[in-house]
Design a protein around this nucleic acid. Structure first.
Length: 219
DNA sequence: CCATTAATTGGCA
DNA sequence: TGCCAATTAATGG
C-alpha cells in the first residue's frame, strides 16, 4: 500500500486533501529511462512524483535536447492544462531514475482543482513558483557563465532535495548524471565535467561517486 | 568478467 | 564554449 508523500507543494495539505488526490489516481512504478509521455500527444494524465526523478524535455531534429523541467518528490507535471485549457503535452517526459508516480486522469485532476479551494491555492502557488524558477534559470543562462549556471543549479538542487550533512554540506544523490545537468542548464557535457572538476579543486564540491555530489553552499 | 554507459581530456573552430 | 575523437573509469549484468 503506497502513500502520497506530504512533500513539495503537497506539504501542509490536510490528510483529507492528500487522500482526496490519492484516491483519484494509481501508483505506478517506472524503471529508469522510461518514457512517461510524448510531446504533442493528448494530455490524458497528470503525474505526481512519489519517489525518484523525472524530467520534461524538448528535442530538435539533430537530437539536441533541452530539459524544461526536473521533477522530484512532491512535484506535479505537466504544468499546463489546469490554469489554461491546453490539451496536449508541451514536452516529452522520461524517468531519470527508478520512479514511483501517482498517475491521475486529466479530468479527475481538473475536477479536484476546480472543486477544492485549498488544493487549488496550493497548486497555484506551486505553479507560480515553478514559473519563477524558469525565469531565474533563463536569466542565468543569458547573464551568467557556464560555471555560474552549474553552481546555481547545484545550490537550488541542494536546497530542494539535498540531504544536509552534519558539517552543513549537502548530499545530492538523485541519480542525476552530468549529462542530465548539461541538458538542464543548456551546455555540453564536456563543459559540465570541466566546471565540476574546477569546483572540486576550489573545494566547493566533492564527487562521492557517479551521480553523487556533495555541495558546500557557503564559506 | 565483459559490455555498456558515463566522464575525462586534448585539440581545434 | 562547442564539437569531435580518443581514452579511461564506473556500472550493471
Amino acid at each position: 500500500m503506497q502513500q502520497l508523500p506530504a512533500a513539495g507543494w503537497l506539504k501542509g495539505l490536510s490528510e483529507e486533501a492528500l487522500h482526496h488526490i490519492e484516491i483519484k489516481g494509481v501508483f505506478r512504478h517506472y524503471p529508469s529511462k522510461e518514457t512517461v509521455f510524448l510531446q504533442k500527444s493528448e494530455l490524458t494524465h497528470y503525474y505526481i512524483v512519489v519517489s525518484g526523478l523525472a524530467n520534461a524535455y524538448r528535442q530538435n531534429e539533430d537530437g539536441k535536447r533541452w530539459t524544461a523541467g526536473l521533477f522530484s518528490k512532491g512535484d506535479l507535471f505537466p504544468h499546463v492544462g489546469l490554469l489554461d485549457d491546453k490539451h496536449e503535452y508541451p514536452a516529452n517526459s522520461e524517468t531519470l531514475s527508478e520512479c514511483t508516480l501517482l498517475v491521475i486522469p486529466r479530468n479527475e485532476m481538473r475536477m479536484i482543482f476546480a472543486s477544492n479551494p485549498q488544493i487549488r491555492l496550493y497548486l497555484t502557488l506551486f505553479l507560480t513558483e515553478k514559473s519563477q524558477d524558469l525565469i531565474a534559470r533563463f536569466s542565468d543562462s543569458v547573464l551568467g557563465t557556464a560555471a555560474d549556471r552549474v553552481l546555481s543549479f547545484l545550490k537550488k538542487l541542494a536546497c530542494n532535495s539535498g540531504i544536509r550533512e552534519s558539517d552543513g554540506r549537502y548530499l545530492i544523490d538523485l541519480g542525476l548524471t552530468e549529462q542530465n545537468i548539461a541538458e538542464y542548464i543548456g551546455v555540453t557535457p564536456e563543459t559540465v565535467s570541466r566546471v565540476l572538476n574546477r569546483l572540486c579543486e576550489e573545494g566547493k564540491v566533492e564527487k562521492l561517486a557517479r551521480k553523487k555530489l556533495l555541495v558546500r553552499l557557503q564559506t
